[in-house]
């Protein structure tokens, strides 16, 4: 049977992403002490016309909440991870990794460096989890 692909970024994609996070033992181990929520901001390019913002509350290796919010001011979070749509696509496709993306200037990160640096493995596992979501891009 052909696998149903989910459009990125949509509410449905985010919901499945949340389930994949909660099914990932590798992420649970790498992020078992993580506390802090994110805004993932996807700025328009490559076919995406409007900015899309996703809220993600990850806590001790599990995802408690994940959903699309109206705009970047809708939620105050500890961390913001921001890039253009085409760069998010590269990240999910495994063409760049989350830390390299920042150093290459393709992603911007706001938040405590002290916390982020302790969880580079967790960031990698989070991206691996995203790759498990059957994804269709615009």
């Amino acid at each position: 049977m052909k696998e149903t692909k989910l459009k990125f970024p949509t509410e449905e994609w985010v919901r499945v992403f949340k389930d994949e996070i909660n099914n990932s033992e590798a992420y649970a181990e790498a992020a078992k002490h993580w506390e802090g929520d994110f805004l993932f901001i996807i700025t328009p390019d490559g076919g995406l016309e409007n900015e899309i913002v996703c809220y993600l509350d990850v806590w001790h290796g599990k995802c408690r909440e994940a959903y699309i919010v109206p705009d970047r001011d809708a939620k105050k979070t500890e961390f913001i991870y921001e890039a253009s749509y085409s760069n998010w696509k590269k990240l999910i496709n495994g063409e760049i990794d989350p830390i390299k993306g920042i150093l290459m200037g393709k992603f911007k990160l706001k938040g405590s460096m002290a916390t982020i640096m302790r969880y580079t493995k967790a960031a990698t596992e989070l991206v691996k989890t995203a790759r498990k979501v059957p994804t269709e891009f615009i």
Binding site: S112, M113, A114, M117
Partner: peptide, 10 residues
């Protein structure tokens, strides 16, 4: 924030 020591984990 961390100096070059911030690179230890990576």
């Amino acid at each position: 924030e961390l100096g070059t020591a911030g690179y230890v984990e990576i």
